[in-house]
Design a protein around this nucleic acid. Sequence first.
DNA 1: CGCACATTTGATATATGTCAATTTAGGTGG
DNA 2: CCACCTAAATTGACATATATCAAATGTGCG
Lengths: 251, 251
Amino acid sequence: MNISSLDVRAGACSRCDIRDRAICGAMSMEELVALRRISHTRKFDAGSTILVAEEPATFFANVVSGVVKLNQVSSDGRQQIVGLLFPSDFLGRAFVRSNPYFAQAATDVVACVYRYDSFEKLLRDHPALEHRLFERTLNDLDAARDWMFVLGRKKAREKVASFLHLIASRYAALDAGCKEHPSETNHARFTLPLSRSDIADFLGLTIETVSRQLTHLKNDGVIHLLSTHDILVPDLRRLEGGSQGKHQAVA
Amino acid sequence: MNISSLDVRAGACSRCDIRDRAICGAMSMEELVALRRISHTRKFDAGSTILVAEEPATFFANVVSGVVKLNQVSSDGRQQIVGLLFPSDFLGRAFVRSNPYFAQAATDVVACVYRYDSFEKLLRDHPALEHRLFERTLNDLDAARDWMFVLGRKKAREKVASFLHLIASRYAALDAGCKEHPSETNHARFTLPLSRSDIADFLGLTIETVSRQLTHLKNDGVIHLLSTHDILVPDLRRLEGGSQGKHQAVA
DNA sequence: CGCACATTTGATATATGTCAATTTAGGTGG
DNA sequence: CCACCTAAATTGACATATATCAAATGTGCG
């Protein structure tokens, strides 16, 4: 079996937008073929549930487009979003069959889905794949801990600013992956993938507070609201500065 | 080289209290010898800094006794504890030389310390070790996300209750590891490893609020304060119930 | 065009933070 | 061993950020 025939069998993967950023990026052509054999594309409508908490998961997935939220829900109805997954992010908890959180499509989502058992087997057989997943998990852990600071120590205005900064950064990273320009611009324009309600659940606030802080940021000229979900940030540094964040310039 | 001579060279590891719970637990006698060669025991006084944030780490470590706090500090002095390490927990961020958080001894700490480069090499050579570390990282991630719910959605009283419950659970787990009784008791007694100030930084509160909530819990009979740092919990379920937590009994 | 839903805005309540004063505890030296 | 001294913890009075409740406005969809 030669390289070109493998390339054909790897099929769409070779042309996948997110391939080099996702876990599949580390894989050899052979491995990619194996991965593709156990995968298929699947769409989820905005708002639909992808994985139910505390129930045996039936698959792992890579987000191809759209945004997935990981939701922690208490019995009395309180919600906290504990993670956001963007294109190229990995969804699923290895080595434990039961999924710890509700995974829900925040927007329309396209995902590359892997059957659970097959993927775990692949993980055992291909240390490079497990290693790649490990590195992602470490990044997820860092991100979660960074967010703990936001939740525990930032004020409402700073929380909202941090959220906007996060969205801008993630989208910028995606663009950087596609186009070949470093894009060290200080402005950003994007469409919010979350509703006010979701933002509130991500920041540990209420809808009303989120809405108020957005109008404050708008009135201060830190952001422009092109429409409810379309935001223009003229100067990203003002978002960080206004958010009194971790890496604020020393006075 | 026979087993018994290996056993001798593994030395103290064979008798280590936390061995079967720490990453070393998965290792063969051969691997243990290799690990021991690059390790040594080190003590840290309460309050001393173990690893500085944003600086190249020089070692990894296993906590043998005491408690380590991982602190996230902003330039304007706000602090958030993003992780607590108990005996058998692993300290250090693999694959990235710079350490993301301040690691500080909350109590007097004894740790089993590994030279950075040597440990990374060991990691490359022993997939089982990396796998074990991966599983721990996944658990850390789950713990961090669970705590995000506490920080974002729980009230002060519930936060304090959650904290006490966490401490009780961790200590119970340690005891279970030592003695051979399942200890499904509903009461607990323990010494707080953190000052009120640390607890506040862990819960995203102020010292005063922590103190007030502790006296409320005391007045309600949920806890008894034997001394400032010694706590008796007559019924652990009341801690969870009173904390309005995730797994509250449905009314 | 109109309905349902999301978002904004306003008025008020309340939990937690802030500031300040005691009380308690722990550690050191006489 | 006790007394003192400092830091930690508690308690109180008050300020304020955010939640709650309620209404109005805006938006997308059939």
